[in-house]
Amino acid sequence: MNALLQVRKLSRHYGQRIGCQDVSFDLHPGELLCIVGESGSGKSTLLNTMAAQLAPSAGSIRYRQKNDAWLELDALSEADRRRLAREEWGFVTQNPRDGLRLNVSAGANVAERLMALGMRDYGRLREIASSWLARVEIDPLRIDDAPTSFSGGMQQRLQIARTLVTQPRLVFMDEPTAGLDVSVQARILDLLRRLVNELGLAAVMVTHDLAVARLLAARTMVMQGGCVVETGLTDQILDDPQHPYTQLLVSSVLTT
């Protein structure tokens, strides 16, 4: 099968400091890849560079569009970047407050991407927004409530609904469950696993938690100091970690 995203020898530096270095991999349609590492390992830099929010210092990223044409992301125009972000991609931020419009209702948050794509039927927008709220386990009666009146977990589920409502082909997720209670985390991970399967999404998720990878991802990449130290099937990495750093991560997961 053809890849959706091809990353080759990608590096991003901040002056002298290395953000990420020489990263290469392919992502296929319907695949969920987890990037695991502790804070400062370069995983968020990598994610933001892939999502064309940071310019790479070296290397290339190619994305295969809906029409099968390949797009070089380092030469991406602002117009194309916004079009992709609107029509083909989604981005879920760690803090839902960064990804939501806090001054408008939950319904408007979910409907925004549909309106950006030109949907002009208010009744239909409400219908879709309601069904998506239900899908992420938010009471549709709260459609007109402000996101600020939601709990942290609800806000994150709202952000997920807002991102997935247009059925993007590729979703980037930056630690979507960090900062939430363990029980709330479990519910969101469960929800994500279900939605990713149902919609057949390709997704890249950054996490510091190997347990998250175990639950969601077929494939996992382990990063340390800006470099990928190990990559492979998640089961393989968990059962037979090769790199000492991965071994350390795995042992800490298994003991908990």
Binding site: E78, A79, R82, R86, G107, A108, M115, A116, L117, I143
Partner: peptide
């Protein structure tokens, strides 16, 4: 200016949606 250049006007409809909802 960028929004105009790209005809990226979804935000305006968010405002109108919100009016009707409220």
């Amino acid at each position: 200016r960028t929004m105009h250049a790209l005809a990226d006007y979804g935000l305006m409809h968010v405002k109108l949606y919100e009016d009707i909802a409220q």
